[in-house]
């Protein structure tokens, strides 16, 4: 078979590392650099005890961020993560109080989260409600329900094994971090080795094309939101195990933390691009930053400020990076108005 390689000058220029790999290496490299920097500058940062605490904190945000990554890959957002986490925490405590084994209570919590996720998915896929609005609505419902159930007060009633699961570690590696890695591995396998991953990314990349070639777009959307709810449920139960209490608002900061982890991990808010483990690294990075600020005695308010700014900057960088490409394309084609 005669085979003439297609080698336009442009193609030659574009050779080298595959963009996905280069992107991944960049993020990993940056993470190592930041770690070394923090270790050098911040006293006590690099101690094993500190690392263990940091990883446990990062793990919870990472689990929530993993589910959220799927939603963002489809081009949407899930703001209900924090509300689901609060609600599931309370439900878990209530179930355990009613005599349900703690591990079963955690599973029930995940299913509760999945139910909320499916509702989000149906709103987005069938009613075509913008995702930030639909999930903002369910955020209100879940956060409100959490307040109502808890009657505004945190509740404490947990078996010792569950608290041990939330706070214990083997060889300085917290159980929660192991849980997060397991979730990452399972999700990475499902996304990488089944149709689901391709469907998810193509739905977010170009929904029109995806529908045209026969990708089950609606089912994919519902699956993404359901997974996000499921993992938010797991994260909520894990948080309760870690804190050994369930407060009606303890999940609230995690909406922002999960979005921040994804955004810092380079997941494209416009959909189609982003990797699961980079989102996890993003969660670790943010936890490290917070931890370092804590060690340096920075006020918690300032930490919120830094997180808020970081999100805007990270999104701005990804967007303006894309903006540059669009400017180039704009030379070829008339600019299209972008409706946000």
């Amino acid at each position: 078979m005669p085979s003439s390689e297609i080698e336009t000058p442009a193609a030659i220029r574009r050779r080298g590392l595959s963009p996905r790999l280069a992107n991944g290496l960049g993020i990993a490299g940056a993470a190592v650099l930041i770690y070394l920097l923090l270790a050098a500058v911040v006293p006590y940062f690099a101690t094993p005890q500190n690392m263990t605490g940091l990883l446990a904190n990062a793990a919870i945000a990472a689990i929530a961020a993993l589910g959220l990554t799927l939603v963002i890959l489809t081009g949407g957002i899930d703001l209900s993560v924090g509300g689901v986490m609060s609600l599931v925490g309370l439900a878990t405590v209530a179930n355990v109080g009613a005599g349900v084994p703690w591990w079963l209570a955690m599973i029930v919590g995940m299913l509760l989260g999945a139910v909320v996720g499916v509702a989000n998915g149906l709103l987005v896929a069938l009613l075509r409600v913008p995702s930030f609005v639909a999930t903002f609505g369910t955020l209100g419902i879940t956060a409100g329900a959490a307040l109502f159930i808890a009657d505004g007060r945190p509740t404490v009633l947990l078996p010792r094994e569950m608290i041990a699961f939330g706070n214990g570690s083997v060889f300085f590696i917290p159980y929660l971090a192991i849980l997060a890695v397991v979730v990452l591995a399972v999700l990475q396998f499902l996304q990488g080795s089944t149709r689901w991953g391709v469907n998810t990314r193509s739905t977010g990349d170009n929904r029109h094309v995806a529908a045209l070639v026969g990708v089950p777009v609606k089912r994919t959307l519902v699956a993404a939101y359901a997974t996000s709810g499921l993992l938010a449920g797991l994260a909520g139960a894990a948080l309760t195990a870690q804190l050994s209490t369930a407060g009606p608002q303890q999940g609230e900061p995690y909406t922002l933390a999960a979005i921040a982890a994804c955004v810092v991990g380079g997941v494209d808010l416009l959909g189609g691009k982003g990797s699961l483990w980079a989102a996890c690294l993003g969660a670790v990075f943010l936890a490290a930053l917070r931890n370092a600020m804590n060690l340096q005695g920075v006020q918690p308010f300032t930490q919120d400020l830094v997180t808020g700014l970081l999100i805007i900057v990270a999104v701005f960088v990804t967007v303006s990076g894309r903006g540059a490409v669009q400017t180039l394309l704009g030379r070829l084609r008339p600019a299209q108005e972008v409706r946000s």
Binding site: I77, F132, L256, L269, D304, G308, I311, V319, G323, S340
Partner: peptide
């Protein structure tokens, strides 16, 4: 900046 409004205003919320 062409950033989605829910991101800018969520960031502004925390700031």
């Amino acid at each position: 900046g062409r950033i989605p409004a829910f991101i800018t205003t969520l960031g502004m919320y925390y700031i």
